[in-house]
Design a protein around this nucleic acid. Structure first.
Lengths: 239, 239
DNA sequence: CGATTTATTGACGAACATCAAATTGGGTGG
DNA sequence: CCACCCAATTTGATGTTCGTCAATAAATCG
């Protein structure tokens, strides 16, 4: 159930079997959400953090004119609001982009981990820190990458993140997003997303149809995106 | 020396005098940097984290064509690479935007805090989590705010962040940036920054001249930026 | 005071948004 | 299986924002 989380944590550092047991014991109830449902509303007091085990989730905020920006995308194995352990109230909404299954981790049990299992706590801390690295890379995309390059970068990142948790073939994966949702992630209009997808297709780099991404030229895509997975920090070393 | 950090942490939660002593004892050498110098280079192995106590620092990455994007701005009292405790290698460069003074915190002492002072460790964790919240707000700016609004938002955020550590008057502060550096923060060209600064001036909201920001109409600026300091999480509550 | 960086302005072009319409595709009920 | 519907995608025409290029003005520094 929390296997994908463990796979990910073990890309960061060893997790002893005792730590594994502690983590499994900290898991609470499992909940399902349907596509479109709100998982967490901004500015609510939370008493548990949420691990995504199946489906796709986005964090987003809205502006006054009704426009919406996705600030983070979560794949299975990701905590979607681990920072609520510290912040108590999250600053963004969490919504299900597809039917989802999540596991709740009551905060008191996570606090307990910080008290008695410092190394494990550091791994959890690391996972919030890597969320930050992903956000920084998003800032790069929105700030200076062109729109094709931005799109290419997103597809590269997701290929790697899905692959880590065993949800991608070597050059293909399922992505439960439509073009409007893509536009909210990349800060552009659906119309322009459509045109840039066409460009990626015509350049022979990638197709995205029927919720499936198929990468035909990985090296070309990486070059266009200037993608470097370094920021995902997936090299195993002691911490 | 680490007083600004303590002020900030105490906005988050109580810090006992024992914890304060532990934190003071963890501080290592003080180092000075001159404007323009590199404080930390991306992809280097670090053995200490860096607390900024004086000056202005930016984290940035460059793309192949030479363009540069700032991913985070640090003010005194901020750790600029606390995440290097977990990631070991940071994914971005750190540069001094003005003459700076920093204090190094050796990682072994910080690890020690996670082992023996869980509550204090959680406050440090929180400070990395708030960095993430600031990054998310930057994503909002770059993704959907117009360029005037983006500029306005930055000035609002900095007013609050400087004020917390006692470095701003009620409607004015020192900001050691030129228009080119502003453009690297906000993902636009220096020319356009110049025009948007002019617009803010003409709208009677704010002036930025000679490294000094003077806000003439705070409410107007906040409205234009849709600024809400909630994400800075400055309400004191138990954690 | 001259030299160099920084700010400012104008003219023009490219990237992206907006508006609107047409097409495709998936699901549903007859 | 077909007809229909609705949502999502695709395309075209046009407008706006912002970038680029280039020149001038102002500020800063030795």
């Amino acid at each position: 159930m929390i296997d994908k989380l463990l796979v990910k944590l073990r890309r960061y550092d060893d997790v002893s079997s005792e730590e594994e047991q502690v983590l499994r014991a900290a898991a609470g109830e499992t909940i399902e959400f349907r596509r479109g449902q709100t998982i967490v509303k901004a500015r609510t007091e939370l008493s548990a953090s949420t691990l995504l085990i199946e489906g796709l989730v986005h964090s987003f905020k809205d502006l006054g004119d009704g426009s919406r920006q996705t600030v983070q995308l979560a794949v299975p194995g990701d905590f979607i609001d681990l920072h609520s352990l510290l912040m108590k109230q999250v600053d963004h909404n969490l919504g299900a982009l597809s039917n989802c299954r999540v596991v709740k981790f009551p905060h008191e049990r996570l606090i307990d981990i910080t008290q008695h299992h410092a190394h494990l706590a550091r791994l959890l801390w690391l996972s919030t820190v890597i969320d930050g690295a992903i956000e920084r890379e998003t800032i790069m995309s929105l700030g200076i990458r062109s729109s094709v390059s931005r799109l290419a970068h997103l597809f590269c990142e997701l290929q790697v993140r899905f692959e880590v948790v065993g949800l991608a073939e070597s050059r293909s994966y399922d992505l439960q997003l439509n073009q409007e949702e893509l536009s909210e992630i990349l800060g552009m209009t659906p119309v322009h997303i459509n045109r840039m997808l066409k460009e990626l297709r015509e350049r022979g780099l990638l197709t995205f149809r029927g919720h499936v991404v198929e990468i035909s030229d990985w090296n070309g895509l990486v070059a266009l995106a200037e993608f470097d997975p370094f920021y995902l920090d997936l090299r195993q070393r002691p911490r």
